[in-house]
Amino acid sequence: MREEIIVSGRSNPLIDPHLEIWEWQIPSYLFLGGLAAGILFFAGLYTIMKKEKEYKTAVAVAPLITPFLLALGLFFLFLDLKHKLYFWQLYTTIKLESPMSWGAWVLMIITPLSILWGAMHLKTVFPRWDWKYPLIEEILDFFGKYKMQMAWLMTIMSVILGIYTGILLSAFNARPLWNTSILGPLFLTSGLSTGAAAIILMSKSHAERLTFAKIDLMLIAIEIFLIVHMFMGFRASTQVQIEASKLFLGGEFTTIFWVFVMGFGLVLPAILEVFELQKIKVPHQIAPVLVLAGGLVFRFIMVHAGQISRWLY
């Protein structure tokens, strides 16, 4: 038996009795960032594939909400800072070994890009839209000539944004639950899946919904594989990671994770999407709403459980 106690009465808030420096702001941002990355990825991809007509929601409609998603996410990040007035220091440095630093710079590129993309497609969605100022028209016409290049940039940046939300956590050696390189691809897949779900929710075209149901089904399968693979890795790893995985395999996060993330967030929507593809009548909104809720719960659980997991000494 081994018992370890701090006898000098340490009570540093947010650290004792266990680390809670990141509350709701970070997981909410990770969700919004992943969702925006997913939507922008499909918008870029279908533009590159020259299928703007068939996939109007993916290319023109859904991206309209991404500037708001990113702005809200950035606002949450700002709320998380404890030394708020110094936030601009993020943009005086480029530190490649700090995922948070390059994440901040990726946001600096992708946020204006999403605003520009939304503005360019506003008339496709609202044909009677009038910009009132000719200068805006001129700017949009100018960028319109480089739409293909923008689509490429947006696709690449959205992948970086999506994967960065996972790498941000996986870079912390001190938190064994996060310290797995699977987390980057896992968060990217989850982000793309929530993006596809948002497109299904917004789409009025049955054909488009079916395509995205197929895409989402594939992404959910990959996500389940990555989650199982992650736990296999933990079980085969050192004692600290075995302990970390126990949080989900019998520990305090077991029920919420396996019921709400795996059950309602992945398996159930996958079954509903199979039904949809088999032409069995189910309201098409249920699956994407479940996917979105599952993605949000997943990020909350990962951020909270990760901060509980630690090295043992």
Binding site: I21, W22, L81, K82, H83, K84, Y86, S98, M100
Partner: peptide
């Protein structure tokens, strides 16, 4: 320092 908490987590 912006108080982001990354170092505390790390």
């Amino acid at each position: 320092c912006i108080g982001c908490g990354a170092c505390i987590t790390s």
